[in-house]
Design a protein around this nucleic acid. Structure first.
Lengths: 228, 228
DNA sequence: AGATGCAAATTGGTTGACCATTGAGGGCAA
DNA sequence: TTGCCCTCAATGGTCAACCAATTTGCATCT
């Protein structure tokens, strides 16, 4: 199956002269060109899309990704996350966060753009309205990832993506998406606000301390009760 | 599409308790379990099959690959290192080291085994005898990676592997292997010894401070002259 | 002539039926 | 009793029709 079509599609792409961002022919056309069924071509497309090489949009077409560099990244880091989640316990994941995130907050206080600060404010508010743990978790991840991005250090941001990816797998997977979300007095809400206030004040040490306190509270709650 | 099903399938697999070579439930069963259509599950299967994580056989079923670790390991972290080296400058790499390695030294002081401490001693001595920068670099990498391993935290160790991998590419690639190594008064020798002494004394804060001083010295030398 | 709105065409995505392969179980002959 | 063959159920693979999203072209209005 894909043993035959995928290599041919790869060859076709590299011989096509298409540049980043260019649009491939329609599926129904290219499958005829390659002499395979549309379903077989779509299977190969799925793999290349997962590798970040292609971008596919209903009604518009299939395109070569603009940033091939990002493509390789998502494949590497996602693969690394999967592997590490296999050998990481919840406490190790939290320890890694305690090493990394206070420093990220420190750097973010110095480098965050107004746009990023506004996004963090939006996320903090949205988390208070979350009606399930699953929705909360997504927003929480986004909050922490935006802080990592605001550090201005690409490598540290990538490290955080890995740690956060592992955390999501290791810590949150026990939750059912139908369970109710955090209550109005959930401690992390005020802690997020404290972190954000320090960032907005451009106070690195305060941001670092607030983040450390937030994570230590989370670790304590984790080791005492179901995931906080 | 796969934005939703693929992570959920990954989560399901890691939470399933299945070992290498084990058979997954039939597609028609697992898609019901995950609450997705069979076609959507099959799409996600295609990606994981391309990653080498799954093996699929008509009439027999879908299995976790027997050589799971090898598949993901070479695919993940090494791939991530290559990508990140493309977008990381020497100063960012050093900043990441300054965030990570003092904490690793702190943890290593608490967790290092006698075997690991002996290995670190051997490496520190060998570095004094290095006759080329290339040989020195390998020993230096090994020294720092042994400290990361001694932290006892798999996730942090992996993060360090990534940072170190990027550093090697970004910082050291400018050196020719034929160039002479460090002279007998190279500052890092004494700094390595100071780190090691603190580890052997099981003094976490001292190890952390010695590592920080070592890296700050390296950063200063980097920004003033060719790599130290 | 330019702008707007709507229908049709184009494009990728999904579905249910069917196809191809495999393995287990039962029946029959030696 | 054992071995072989056939049937059927189970499993992944494919197909054609249909659905959902987007773009294009044409008619109408200002």
């Amino acid at each position: 199956m894909q043993e035959k079509v995928l290599p041919r599609l790869r060859n076709w792409i590299s011989g096509s002269g298409l540049a980043k961002g260019d649009r491939l022919p329609p599926e129904r056309t290219l499958c005829t060109t390659l002499g395979v069924s549309r379903a077989e071509l779509r299977n190969a497309y799925l793999v290349l899309e997962a590798e970040g090489i292609l971008e596919r949009h209903v009604g518009r077409g299939t395109f070569l990704s603009r940033s091939l560099r990002a493509a390789r990244g998502s494949n590497g880091i996602e693969g690394a996350i999967s592997e590490l989640a296999e050998s990481t316990g919840p406490v190790d994941a939290m320890t890694a966060r305690l090493v990394l995130e206070p420093e990220l907050a420190n750097l973010a206080a110095l480098h965050a753009t107004p746009l990023q600060l506004r996004e963090l404010r939006r996320l903090a508010s949205a988390m208070r309205e979350a009606t399930s743990w699953s929705a909360y978790e997504e927003l929480d991840s986004e909050f922490h990832e935006t802080i990592a991005a605001a550090s201005g250090n690409t490598l540290l941001q990538a490290l955080h993506r890995m740690v956060n990816g592992v955390r999501v797998i290791v810590v949150w997977r026990r939750l059912k998406s139908t369970e109710r979300g955090p209550g109005a007095d959930y401690h992390s809400f005020d802690e997020h606000d404290a972190i954000l206030a320090a960032l907005e004040s451009r106070d690195g040490p305060a941001a670092s301390a607030a983040m450390r306190q937030h994570l230590q509270g989370t670790l304590a709650a984790m080791t005492a009760a179901p995931p906080a």
